[in-house]
Design a protein around this nucleic acid. Structure first.
Length: 293
DNA sequence: TACACCTGCTCCTTAACTCA
DNA sequence: TGAGTTAAGGAGCAGGTGTA
């Protein structure tokens, strides 16, 4: 059984641990179990409950009112939330609970509903990436096992591949991108989304995929006409040396412009970058950069 | 408008846990 | 074993809200 500490609930719901304790003291919608040493722990049902309560509370419902609602009433109120931000957060919460309960069909239905109503771009930016961020949090606290992660990332991957297949633009631009993930990097979703953006803008791209050495990627640049190189780094090992990596990039791809995105870019703080290297600390920055083409 | 109540926060102390 | 970290819980404060 998956159990969560109060800290996990704080991270996932955004509600401070002390506030959660106060709510528990004042209302009765949370009834955590205790360890022998009196430490609270929560099960999946309670995680779902606190996510729902946090969302209602965030969108103006008073905590005293929420506490008087039944589980069904809370669900009903959540469905009534019409603000787009509330809808997105509700979808993210539903995806998390579907993943935790390994309800693959339900997970796919939630995602399909959102994509159908809002389109893939909004789904990726407002639901899929916020969901992946929270899943990362669950992963680092050992609440998601590899099977759960693979199940859901494969579904998202399939959706992106189908979208790439059907992406179309009337005009074909005369620049070509080379897309790949460097050695040791396997988190392909962001790169697939970049591929989708480029294809829908009529920009040809050579997609090499995950775990590609810089030498192999550079060999492609020598044989094919490539104007831009795009790499995404989600996570790296402890032995990853930023400066060495930048030096290798510089050696292999100069004078081609290289766009580098992903959470790892935070490690570059203060590092002086070669002129042709464009580092995007947030994925949103990378996407708006690509949209400028 | 005054007052009571609600809500969320900080501060503090104590205890349990972790790790070198 | 001791230092550092994390969590529990009480007290009290400030700002918001409802009501007479």
């Amino acid at each position: 059984m998956n159990v969560f500490t109060i800290k996990d609930l704080e991270n996932l719901s955004g509600i401070k641990a002390h506030t959660i304790r106060m709510w528990e003291q004042r209302y009765d919608f949370l009834k955590p179990q205790r360890t022998e040493s009196n430490i609270r722990y929560y099960d999946g049902q309670e995680l779902k409950r606190i996510l729902n309560v946090a969302l209602l509370n965030k969108f103006g419902f008073r905590i005293s009112n929420i506490s008087r609602m039944s589980e069904d009433e809370r669900q009903e109120k959540l469905l009534e939330l019409t603000q787009s931000l509330a809808c997105e957060e509700r979808f993210v919460s539903e995806l998390i609970t579907a993943m935790m309960e390994m309800e693959v069909k339900r997970f796919e239905e939630i995602l399909d509903n959102y994509i159908l109503s809002k389109g893939l771009n909004k789904a990726v930016q407002h639901v899929i990436f916020p969901f992946l961020e929270k899943m990362g949090l669950l992963w680092t606290t050992n609440h998601v096992n590899p099977a759960q992660e693979h199940l859901v990332t494969n579904i998202v991957r399939q959706k992106l591949i189908v979208a790439i297949e059907s992406a179309y633009s009337r005009v074909e631009k005369k620049i070509t991108f080379l897309l790949f993930l460097p050695e040791g990097e396997f988190h392909e979703l962001s790169l697939l989304y970049v591929y989708y953006i480029l294809k829908s803008k009529g920009i040809p791209a050579l997609y090499l995929g995950a775990n590609i050495s810089l030498t192999d990627a550079a060999a492609v640049c020598k044989r094919k006409k490539v104007d831009y190189v795009y790499l995404h780094l989600t996570s790296v090992t402890n032995s990853f040396h930023v400066n060495k990596f930048l030096k290798d990039l510089n050696n292999q791809f100069t004078p081609l412009p290289v766009i580098l995105s992903g959470p790892v870019m935070h490690k570059l703080n203060g590092t002086e970058l070669p002129e042709h290297l464009h580092c995007k600390q947030s994925f949103a920055d990378a996407i708006s950069f690509l949209n400028s083409f």
